[in-house]
Design a protein around this nucleic acid. Structure first.
Lengths: 256, 256
DNA sequence: AAGTGGTCTAGACCACATT
DNA sequence: ATGTGGTCTAGACCACTTA
């Protein structure tokens, strides 16, 4: 299989070999050297042509399978999946990343940044704090291409982000700020429901009162499973669409 | 670590060892033998106590990690994740399963089952058919505990499910019917948006006209990446909430 | 120093597909 | 008969954390 040769992987570098292989195959897919439905090089081909172990090649391919780029058929081979099935659905992103991905220019108008002293019980419980003044709240009107997209209220634990009150939340992405402080976000639980914008909300979002809106509640966790952020976002129903990829779980007991 | 001994795995059976190990550890978590935040047995412990290779033990643990039951910390160990983070979010389920999981009794009222001859272009394209009469449409009012929950319109390729017109879609789950015919569903792409119920829709859903509703579009694929179903569902905004778990992807090349 | 997860090797046998 | 993915082994070295 042309395109894969021993020189393509660096065994001494700090980057794991399987990650390099993953990037190599991904590149072949994205540049069209491998097209949809086509058979990808087999595990053994990848292993021998790159001079690595089959298990290492397999690790790379497995990752691409779980990310939706490839799918395997036992006895036949590994095939390139339909691009529709490998869209970056269900990836945890910031509003900023989300908008950029949609081809829109993200923006923010800061409505409030303060130590919160009247936090709903539900939020306090979720964030694992008991008293008042333990959370910082950020309220922002998020814009896309300059026009209102959603109304966002975040709560973060003061103990973990005491420096937040000094940050510039007008322009920057909150998630990028957190990462620059070595707070690694790992996953988030989201709940979505359809609702109507109240009078105040519709005014800020510049839509008629009673317009449909998508209410998204998100609890973000760090790589140590600690809740780091509770966000309630109200998106304009006419401008926003949420996408996700759902997977079927295997049955227990070897049935399937 | 008590609870894991050589007799617990069957090396001759048809069930892979790592699946058995996965089930064993999962059981320890669900029965409380391992509680939230506690350290799970290490890869080497599992391997030696069960008399298997470390790589096999690791395969089982990796699966549980990717399913959200455990999380690893390099150099420290593997820990049991918060139950909130391992809820079955983002799993592909039928309406029937979904309702049962929410503790509601699912039901259906068949509104239409026919060969569809006026299918929107978008649906035809998605399903990969060109002409008319190649899709079967199913329109049902779905109920939960006897009260209307959503209005569901499905399109399936006639060529793949010619027997569908004879099926009982009043009581049974469509997905269970497909599975009984050896059609394995693997994943689905979903798009959600907030909207308002039209007059006809609100009447069927027994809500006031102009009520908020969650519009869900789903395209379901088989394990061979073939689209098998296109569904448009309109859920009552006051009764339904969609949940998902989002994960952060790793950065490439150590740039971060 | 000892234990942990992260990575990697060089083999092996199996069931299944294709030729 | 050959090639494929699926599974499994019995080692190995590394960076990291904890004691």
């Amino acid at each position: 299989m042309r395109g894969l040769s021993r020189g393509d992987v660096n065994k001494d570098g700090s980057t794991p070999i399987y990650s390099q292989v993953e990037a190599l195959i991904l590149d072949m897919i994205e540049t069209g050297k491998l097209s949809t439905g086509e058979r990808a090089p087999s595990e053994r081909e990848v292993a021998t042509s790159l001079g690595i172990s089959r298990m290492t090649a397999r690790a790379a391919i497995s990752k691409l399978v779980s990310d939706g780029y490839l799918h395997t058929v036992a006895g036949k081979g590994t095939f390139v999946s339909d691009p529709k099935l490998r869209q970056d659905l269900l990836e945890l992103t910031s509003f900023t990343e989300d908008m950029l991905r949609r081809g829109l220019r993200p923006g923010a108008r800061l409505l409030g940044l303060e130590v919160a002293d009247q936090v709903p019980l539900k939020v306090r419980r979720t964030m694992g704090v008991s008293g008042d003044s333990e959370l910082i709240s950020v309220r922002r009107l998020r814009t896309a291409d300059g026009r209102p997209m959603c109304l966002e209220t975040s709560y973060l634990p003061r103990a973990k982000v005491p420096w937040l009150l000094e940050e510039d939340l007008q322009s920057g992405s909150l998630y990028r700020i957190l990462e620059s402080r070595s707070i690694e976000l790992a996953k988030a639980e989201e709940h979505l429901e359809a609702t109507l914008a109240t009078e105040e909300e519709s005014e800020l979002l510049t839509v008629p009162a009673g317009s449909p809106a998508l209410l998204i509640e998100r609890i973000t966790y760090t790589d140590r499973d600690e809740p780091i952020e509770y966000v309630k976002s109200l998106y304009r129903g006419d401008r926003y669409r949420f996408s996700a990829m759902l997977f079927k779980k295997r049955k227990k007991g070897g049935g399937s």
